[in-house]
Amino acid sequence: MSTISPRSRRARWPWVVLVIVLVLAALVVASEFVARAIVPNTVRSLVISNLDLPADQQLDVEVPGVMLPQLISGTLDEVELSSDEVTIGGITGSAHVRATDVPVAGGALGAAEGTVSIDQDEFGSLLAASQLPITRIALAAPNATVEGEVELFGRRIPVGLTVTPGAEQGDLLLTPVSLMLNGMQMDLDAVSGMIGAVGEQVTKPQRICIADRLPAGIALTGLRIEGTRAVADISADGRISIDPALLETGTCPRS
């Protein structure tokens, strides 16, 4: 009857440990691949459903870092959402959003913020509620120029107003920087004093509420012109993932 010597058993032991380690590593890698296949699709489906987007909406989801430890902890450190073209509140643009501390089993987000980039036409639609006489708009960083006509002394006078867009307390803010009146460069302060109400209308900063174009849980925090596009910074209330009221369209105060 043969026996295995202690020396032989000792020689085999490191190989057994190595095989076990390799099997466990393979299982971890396989689990990570499965998690990466399932989790982004689940997040995508939830976002599309909650925002009432088309089922075939192009929406990329990325979860940076190793996913398994995050799933075990019950919280994804970071989730990035991006789309080349998405329509929310009648406004279409490209979007990129970064959410942090995302509960796997549901709950409020730690934070969520991002950017939305829109073209001249879409930006112009945001100005529909302004007091500016707009028939044409052009974007050229860092400003926007709006053209139209104002009534002055019984005549329709062409006006071109250049403004710097921004944001203030969730509203779109337009700050005038130069004015062309009937083809002539005008001093903003002089025009404001000369032509009364019309001057006030085109030369003073204007705040435009756009809350009625966004879900109630999303707010405008900044806006700038980059090239020929307007880029809006947005932030979301972390409770938007658990409070349906925050997904409803917001409201603007009545004037």
Rank of each mutant, 00 (worst) to 15 (best):
R9G: 05
R9M: 12
A11C: 08
R12I: 07
R12M: 10
W15K: 04
W15C: 11
I20S: 07
I20N: 03
V21W: 06
L22G: 04
A25R: 02
A25G: 01
A26S: 04
V29R: 01
R36P: 04
A37D: 08
I38N: 14
I38G: 07
I38K: 05
T42D: 13
V43E: 14
V43A: 06
S45H: 10
L46Q: 05
D52F: 10
D56V: 07
D56H: 05
Q57M: 00
Q57W: 03
V61W: 14
E62A: 12
V63D: 07
V63F: 07
P64W: 12
P64Y: 11
G65Q: 12
V66L: 13
M67E: 08
M67Y: 13
Q70D: 14
I72W: 15
S73N: 14
L76F: 13
E78V: 04
V79K: 00
S82F: 01
D84Q: 09
E85I: 02
V86G: 03
G90E: 08
I91L: 04
G93E: 02
G93A: 03
S94R: 03
V97T: 08
R98V: 15
A99K: 01
T100W: 08
D101K: 04
V102S: 01
P103T: 02
G106K: 07
G107P: 15
G107I: 12
L109R: 04
V116K: 00
S117K: 06
D121W: 00
E122Y: 05
F123A: 12
G124F: 05
G124Q: 09
S125D: 12
S130A: 02
L132Y: 09
L132A: 02
P133F: 02
A138M: 10
A138N: 11
L139S: 01
A140Q: 08
N143A: 02
A144C: 04
T145S: 14
V146E: 07
V146D: 04
F153V: 11
F153L: 14
V159I: 06
T162V: 06
G170E: 00
D171M: 10
D171K: 04
L173K: 13
L173I: 03
L179E: 12
L179S: 03
L181Y: 14
V191I: 05
I195L: 15
T203N: 03
I210Y: 04
L214I: 10
A216H: 08
I218A: 03
A219V: 11
A219F: 01
A219E: 09
T228M: 11
A230E: 00
D233R: 08
G238K: 09
R239M: 13
I242P: 15
I242D: 14
A245R: 13
A245L: 13
T249I: 12
T251N: 06
